[in-house]
Design a protein around this nucleic acid. Structure first.
Ligand code: SF4
Ligand code: SF4
Lengths: 166, 166
DNA sequence: TGAAGTGCGACAAATTTAGTCCTATACTGA
DNA sequence: TCAGTATAGGACTAAATTTGTCGCACTTCA
């Protein structure tokens, strides 16, 4: 195992995929340009230097899930289907990369084969919920207005913690 | 892109590595057997069906970082170097998989090339801190006594949120 | 009708993770 | 003192995932 050499590790565990990253950037861009009726994938890709075809797929997925409205043809493109405040980072990531599970088990298609005698599955599920909570408390709007994000995130998280078991 | 087919996604984003999983299981096991002076990697691996050599590496890393004490030779093995309550999930994951960064950038070896004109880097760094906070509030002891984990986790998180910006 | 879009499946490349092998070294006890 | 058991760790292979590309069908509009 390459990464097994004791002195060093490949940095960035629990990493978001690039696609999720791209999706968030695109949504932020759309939130910042409410004037434009619709923006094409290519426009956004060019602005940030993202591979256009890849971003297109991401936006297609976000459209399919209902976070975006799309319009084909000339001057076509995408637009937010809701207010930026109403779209959470969790929804975006979920739409792009699927359900957020920190473990390989957790009722998905392929569960790990040592699930039967695994003893940390349950506690980790709780941790998973906490992390999901953090992501749910962040909206696309928070990405735009970074200064208010801290306050909103904090409030959101605290109320979340008070209303459900962690 | 295989995973790009619109209808489905590879499930489990933000996933922990197996190695981190193994490490947590092993630490839990050690916490549950304080009677034993030391437990060998093979013993733990056999109990859970983990590849022994791989677990050995994980335990070696945990030892190097000071979370475990090791002892070679017959009847040798590993033991916790601190109380289970004093070892956070964050430390374990950090030791095994390196710094926890949800983004590819964040001052590590290789930052993503669209960092200059990326606008979501800053907000995501905050999210990253929140997630790290969740992991820091969970101890190995919480994995053992799952019932108290909820309470402890909640307290830990709330106080964390009150003491630092999210 | 043709240029500019989206929608989507298949494919290839790159990267990361998982797991194995092999050797060296340390300790233990008969 | 020597055989056996265990940690320490580097090198390597294999599997899985992520990332990116192509090609084509379909839509819209000037
Ligand atoms: S069953 Fe246990 S080891 Fe397997 S993925 Fe779930 S938590 Fe990790
Ligand atoms: S896109 Fe932005 S946030 Fe994501 S890794 Fe690159 S610089 Fe960091």
């Amino acid at each position: 195992m390459g990464g097994s050499r004791i002195g060093e590790q490949g940095d960035g565990v629990l990493r978001l995929t690039k696609k999720a990253d791209y999706g968030l950037m695109a949504l932020k861009y759309l939130a910042e340009h409410p004037d434009s009726v619709s923006v094409s994938a290519k426009d956004i890709a060019d602005t940030y230097g993202i591979p256009p075809q890849l971003l297109a797929k991401v936006l297609q997925r976000l459209t399919k899930v209902g976070l975006l409205r799309s319009h084909a043809g000339m001057n076509g493109g995408y637009a937010l289907s809701r207010q930026a405040q109403q779209i959470s980072a969790f929804e975006v990531i979920h739409a792009i990369d699927g359900p957020l599970f920190i473990t390989s088990c957790t009722k998905g298609s392929k569960s790990c084969d040592l699930e039967p005698n695994c003893t940390i599955k349950e506690p980790l599920a709780r941790v998973n919920e906490s992390i999901a909570g953090v992501l749910k408390s962040i909206s696309v709007y928070d990405l735009v207005d970074a200064d208010t994000a801290a306050a909103r995130g904090q409030d959101g998280l605290v109320t979340l913690l008070h209303s459900q078991a962690v």
